[in-house]
Design a protein around this nucleic acid. Structure first.
Length: 481
RNA sequence: GGUCCCAUCGUCUAGUGGUUAGGACACCGGCCUCUCACGUCGGUAACCCGGGUUCGAAUCCCGGUGGGAUCACCA
């Protein structure tokens, strides 16, 4: 049987980074085995499902490069279009006595739960309706039509259910611990645990890969498979992702959606690599291409304990991919960020490439890169007063003037080597060390004391912008006199 | 509270009975240097506790402790 995995998010919010990791692992396992990967939309909860959320899920996965063999826009992979199928399966269970109607109201159930809690008993369903007789041709509930009851699965009371999990190993559940869960709500909508079983069976899912928060559901789902006369799939429950404080990752921890990271200037390779490496390893290797991930992935190499999401390591990884990028790719990727920062986008791609090349080793994200690039992208630079006080002093005026003269004689698109030789002449003439001249020039050109190498900066800026800024600095010093 | 899962540096992890317990991020220091970085070299730092099993346990077993998940007409 060919391997088939699925990722089944519900479109009720942003695509969360901890959640997408389960999808990634399911994807990797399918690809590793040359199998199929299905994207299924768990939208039985019509109230909370939104179109925006669905679009974000699709766009996030596409951006990450997690491509599906079946799924949206094909409606067959939306639970909301499969209700007939769920009804048919539930009816069958009802006819066979493997499910039964429950007339307890939500209020009654809630009261019983509270009562059980007070008496320190377990809060599960007590089986009030389990043995009440019901009509052989009882239809499914439909509150609107006056059929105000739910359908519960008749879970076996004896024996035990064993989950052989590919990552967690062997877990045994006593069947008496499993209460009779609702498979159809009184509004005629199937519940998650039921719909998911029918789908996994119909789509011939061989491996259910998901977060370990689903582990307690697994024995119940296995029992439904069995009641339907179907063989359950294999399971792989991945530990969850926590925030720095050890609590499950949530909005409280700041950025958690895939889009948030994309917009913060991270690369898809970074996220893929980081997420894979969180809870999975291949010896001492840290950097993995998607192809390597697919090649090496196995559940055996997955950790069993929850992992803490470490933004600093993510940043380091992004830096790695940023440094490694070709100048032209980086230039292209920077454009939307330049636009968003409010700068005019330079039309000269060769120039843009030169620019990003000088920034490549000091920016960790695209956002940072554009941030650093402000003195390239705008002539409206603010000179930091502290830097000016320290470096733009009267004694540097003459060397700066000499520099203006020397640089002014160069071509507009001067090279670093040409700039360097002008600097050396001036340095020699005034008996200065490079640092004594470079820092004032840096302040004049960039407004601050931190920038790429001064020759690089000048080569990118070009002759006239450089000369103009130097002259402005000279004038500033004169004015301060 | 019941049930289930988990436990190696601060963090991600390697390790499957015998290792000076390895790597990565972060941190600290040296070198490089026109600033900041990059790079490079080095350093600090871990087997949760207690019992077994064994000639020998990070590794196997049991118990404790701690963390997590779950117990909906949500998914």
């Amino acid at each position: 049987m060919t391997v088939c995995t699925r990722y089944a998010p519900s479109p009720t919010g942003s695509l969360h980074i901890g959640n997408v990791r389960s999808g990634l692992f399911a994807y990797l396992w399918a690809r590793h085995n040359g199998g199929r990967f299905i994207l299924r939309i768990d939208d039985t909860d019509q109230e909370r499902s939104t179109r925006e959320s669905l679009e974000e899920i699709v766009a996030s996965l596409q951006w990450l490069g997690i491509e599906w063999d079946a799924g949206p826009p094909d409606r067959r992979y939306f639970q909301s279009s499969r209700f007939d199928r769920y009804r048919e399966a539930a009816l069958r269970l009802l006819r066979e006595g493997k499910a039964y109607p429950c007339y307890c109201t939500p209020e009654e159930l809630e009261a019983k739960r509270r009562q059980a809690e007070r008496e320190r008993r377990k809060p599960g369903y007590d089986g009030t309706c389990r043995n009440k007789p019901f009509a052989a041709d009882l239809p499914l509930p439909d509150r609107g039509a006056g059929r105000n009851y739910t359908i519960r699965f008749r879970s076996p009371r004896e024996g035990q259910t064993v989950v052989e999990d590919l990552v967690k190993g062997h877990s045994v559940f006593q069947n008496q611990e499993l209460d009779d869960l609702i498979i159809f709500r009184s509004d005629g909508v199937p519940t998650y645990n039921f719909a998911t079983v029918i789908d996994d069976a119909d789509f011939e899912i061989t491996h259910v890969v998901r977060g370990d928060d689903h582990l307690p559901n697994t024995p119940r789902q296995i029992q439904i498979f069995l009641a339907l006369g179907l063989a359950p799939p294999l399971y792989a429950h991945l530990p969850m992702v926590m925030g720095l404080d050890g609590k499950p990752l949530s909005k409280r921890h700041g950025a958690t959606s895939v889009f948030a990271y994309r917009d913060a200037g991270y690369f898809p390779e970074t996220l893929l690599n980081y997420l894979a490496r969180l809870g999975w390893s291949h010896g001492d290797q840290e950097i993995f291409s998607k192809a390597e991930l697919i090649q090496y992935f196995s559940f055996e190499a997955c950790g069993k304990s929850p992992g803490i999401f470490n933004p600093e390591k993510l940043l380091w990884l992004n830096f790695h991919y940023l440094k490694q990028r070709s100048a032209d790719q980086l230039a292209r990727e920077a454009i939307p960020f330049i636009k968003r920062a409010g700068y005019q986008v330079p039309q000269d791609m060769a120039w843009l490439e030169k620019m990003v090349s000088t920034l490549r080793e000091r920016a960790k994200t695209l956002v940072e890169l554009v941030d650093f690039a402000r003195f390239y992208l705008s002539d409206d630079i603010a000179i930091d007063p502290k830097a000016a006080a320290k470096f733009l002093k009267p004694e540097i005026v003459e060397p700066l003037k000499a520099l203006v003269k020397g640089l002014g004689a160069l071509r507009e698109n001067c090279t670093e080597a040409e700039v360097q030789s002008v600097f050396e002449q001036v340095l020699g003439r005034f008996g200065l060390k490079l640092g004594q001249l470079a820092q004032p020039v840096r302040v004049a050109l960039t407004g601050g004391t931190v920038s790429p190498g001064i020759y690089e900066v000048i080569a990118v800026l070009g002759r006239s912008r450089t000369v103009a800024r130097l002259e402005r600095a000279i004038a500033m010093i004169a004015q301060a006199q």
